[in-house]
Design a binder for these strands. Structure first.
Lengths: 298, 298
DNA sequence: ACAATTCATGAGATTTTCTCATATTATAAC
DNA sequence: GTTATAATATGAGAAAATCTCATGAATTGT
């Protein structure tokens, strides 16, 4: 009823029989290849010809030859079926044991990247793909992920790996604040995601004075860090996210005081994949990484 | 038995159902589009997934979404099916009324080409394809042909259009023979296809002397004509084949005497196509062409 | 002329696919 | 929460497509 009429569809199995017969120029041999009788092939092709509305083969004597139209059709059909079969063949190769797909939030990626390089070095046989993932709901197709939430669904497992702490950082190339007063007078970079960060930090530092509320506010943590690197001010950033920048000297943490953001990062993975060696290797590697808690003294 | 085992073949109809469901992201709507029930689609896709060995859709709540593998597979499948459907669509457009496929032997083509241009000009709506054909047995896919044999098969019709005559020709740039004696002394180009041509010609010219038997022999009439054009000697060629060369001044026929080769050219066409306007137009055009008999005084 | 090979076809068996009815699962509204 | 709703999954039998078998017809090669 919903259909205009009948949106005639090419009879696909007949097309396959045709492709085979066109290639072998023989119904009999096509039948062999397809594992059916010659009569079946004959019928299939008759079906296709009647659908097409014209002969695809000329019957010459006891053999067959393609008509011009058939010749052309055969070429196109061959292409299409080749695409199909190769697509099937590829997808049928089960997800490789040697490819590990790791998911992570944007901020966690910042920290992960350094780790991944190390992991990669330790397990050259594995190739690691990093994919953006925000929540445990997006874990399909992913072997294991670093997220700021624990897994609640019963099909997932997770382990806490890091309690996020925030720490002030700035470029070593700028006027690095040496005192809390100097800091309070500097340009403070704020993060939408952590609105109370600076307040909490100054409280933790037992600083009583006023400080720069008016600094720029960033929605994107990575952008704030980038701004700090470029010397545009002092950011208060997740310690794990600036770890590599500090190591490389692009950033400096002028004060040892850090505050908790409340976020806890977890490794999360589908239970079904927990037993895969590649997943276990990665999980063990991350848990064993000495750096996990380095800047993370609660 | 001949088969190694089973050369597993992608279940094509399941693939089609998948393509549809992947596009609409709904079994229910796919079922509507395919004109079957939802359950049928569900089963088809289950079949495909079990063939593929992995899920193509994720069942999320009351809906479905493609898995990563499914996403990729869908894209490839879509391409393949599109090729298939468009190939079918094209072939199903019956052979166009606006395309005339003309067959001709190599030598007849030489004469036809000039005519075709004229025909083309007279019927701009038609596009004409010229295809090499040697005998009436090769007429499939051809609307009408010029051949040196009449049609014997009952499915064909034919009409004589030209009795081939042979006439001496040479390049105007060379020493053009003015007398029969001069001709007899010149380099005569012989044709395998017409071994007695020169003998017959000299007989017709009532020439009694000796003449150059020793000239080069050509298997290919076109090559002999080309040789004559290049001034390598005097060829005795089918008048119709050199008509345009004479008109353009590239060749010269020094003597008005011609002899019959015995060959008679015919227009031949499948009876089934005799009624098509494009075929009738061409047939009438050829028959009416004033030039057909011009060099053909028996 | 005859044997062998090949495609075509009728009749019935077989297999696949579809429908119908119902179960299952998840969302959305109350 | 509970219920209504909307989607996919599935069991059983019906329907349809497909295949096999047997045979016919046409052609080639001996």
């Amino acid at each position: 009823m919903a259909q205009p009429d009948r949106p005639f569809r090419t009879p696909l199995n007949a097309v396959r029989a045709f492709e085979c017969a066109a290639r072998l120029l023989s119904y009999t041999r096509a039948a062999e290849e397809l594992g059916v009788t010659q009569g079946a092939v004959s019928r299939q092709i008759a079906t296709l010809e009647s659908y097409i509305g014209q002969p695809l083969f000329r019957r010459i004597g006891r053999g067959i030859a393609l008509t011009f139209a058939g010749e052309r059709y055969a070429a196109e059909v061959r292409d299409a079926l080749a695409i199909l079969e190769s697509a099937s063949a590829r997808i049928m190769r089960r997800p490789d044991e040697s490819v590990l797909i790791v998911g992570a939030t944007a901020i966690a990626s910042r920290w992960l990247i350094g780790r991944l390089a190390e992991f990669q070095r330790a397990h050259r046989a594995l190739s690691v793909h990093l994919r953006d993932v925000t929540s445990t709901a997006e874990l399909h197709g992913i072997d294991i992920a670093v997220l700021s939430e624990a897994a609640r669904e019963p099909s997932l497992e997770s382990l806490e790996i890091l309690r996020e702490r925030l720490i002030p950082v700035c470029s070593p190339a700028t006027d690095v604040p040496q005192t809390h007063d100097a800091l309070a007078e500097g340009t403070l970079l704020h993060l939408t995601a952590y609105p109370d960060a600076w307040a909490n930090w100054f409280a933790a530092a037992e600083f009583k004075g006023a400080y720069g509320f008016a600094g720029p506010v960033f929605d994107d943590v990575a952008l704030a860090i980038e701004a700090a690197i470029q010397g545009q001010g002092i950011a208060i950033a997740p310690a794990h996210a600036v770890e590599t920048d500090i190591e490389s000297g692009r950033l400096l943490a002028p004060f040892p005081i850090s505050v908790s953001s409340g976020r806890r990062y977890h490794l999360a993975w589908p239970k079904a994949k927990g037993r895969l060696q590649k997943v276990r290797l990665f999980r063990d590697f991350i848990l064993a990484a000495p750096a996990v808690g380095r800047l993370d003294k609660t």
